[in-house]
Design a binder for these strands. Structure first.
Length: 274
DNA sequence: ACTATCCCCTGACGGC
DNA sequence: TGCCGTCAGGGGATAG
């Protein structure tokens, strides 16, 4: 599932390759991929040049100048690939962006079809406001996060997964960060002191950066723009390790249903609740 | 404001 | 072999 490091890896791979390229045409084979109001996306962006590629949380933006752009959320299984212009679209390729005078095109694949594309009329800010996205996980300040955690009775896991609190974390990195901090995922967020929130944020940034360096985590479908899998799954300490010995204390890793998600944690290292 | 639940969708997997 | 039920999950919607 693409979270911040995976989207960042894709963005970095695309930047050097397609910034400056002009959009020749857009072919969409799955109308449902286009969010409400974006049905005209193809006609609107055709002829424009991709001036910059940005990311906020799990969203990727192709910016075309004048506020015009394309926003993409990869959902669970979305892939944005640079492929040879002549490559045939397979059954999971739902949209293609042809680039003028380039030997490769952008192909969007998505097995489960949870991803969405929308049209930006006034830059990423409009979408960020509409979706009420919080600050990006690599940029949010401890004061701000502490403030948000203070005014809720939810668990720390629910808050970290909430894109309106902090944008970019999903189920994998949330579990990894909480394990490294020795925090129980069901711990009430408001119980964290300012110093604990600072530490949590330091660990979050360290985990995200390490994951970006390794091109993200591939559990099932994720690949970057070149079709390469990530390597951070080798560094995971708890996620997907149910029943295996905790790498710190040997206790079998538990899996429980917390904040509406399958949650991995060490019952011995992560105290604080139940 | 928050929780619980369902939905979307498909491939993987277990049971028979 | 193959059919069928179940599960997983990000985010949106809806009911309570």
């Amino acid at each position: 599932m693409p979270e911040l490091p995976e989207v960042e890896s894709i963005a970095r791979g695309l930047r050097a390759q397609i910034e400056g390229a002009r959009i020749e045409a857009v072919r969409c084979a799955l109308p449902d991929l286009l969010a409400e109001g974006a049905e005209c996306l193809g006609e609107r962006v055709q002829g424009h040049t991709i001036r910059a590629i940005q990311r906020h949380g799990k969203y990727l933006f192709l910016l075309l100048g004048g506020g015009l752009g394309v926003a993409l959320h990869l959902g669970m299984t979305g892939q944005l690939l640079l492929v040879p212009r002549a490559a045939p679209a397979d059954r999971h390729t739902h949209l293609e962006i042809l680039l003028a005078r380039r030997s490769r095109k952008l192909a969007y694949r998505d097995v489960r079809k949870f991803g969405r594309m929308s049209l930006l009329e006034s830059g990423p800010e409009g979408l960020i406001r509409r979706k009420r996205l919080g600050p990006d996980a690599l940029l949010i300040e401890a004061r701000q996060l502490h403030g948000a955690l203070q005014r809720t009775r939810r668990s720390i896991k629910a808050c970290l997964l909430d894109q309106r609190v902090i944008a970019g974390l999903g189920n994998i990195y949330t579990d990894e960060v909480l394990f490294r901090r020795g925090l129980h995922p069901a711990c009430p967020a408001a119980a964290l002191a300012p110093a604990e929130v600072s530490g949590l944020l330091r660990t979050t940034r360290a985990v995200l950066r390490a994951a970006i360096e390794r091109n993200g985590t591939t559990i099932s479908d994720y690949v970057n723009a070149r079709g390469e899998k990530g390597r951070y799954q080798q560094k995971l300490l708890v996620y997907d390790r149910k029943g295996k010995p905790c790498r710190r204390c040997g206790t079998p890793i538990a899996r429980a249903w917390i904040a509406g998600r399958g949650t991995y944690f060490c019952p011995s290292c992560q105290k604080g609740q139940d």
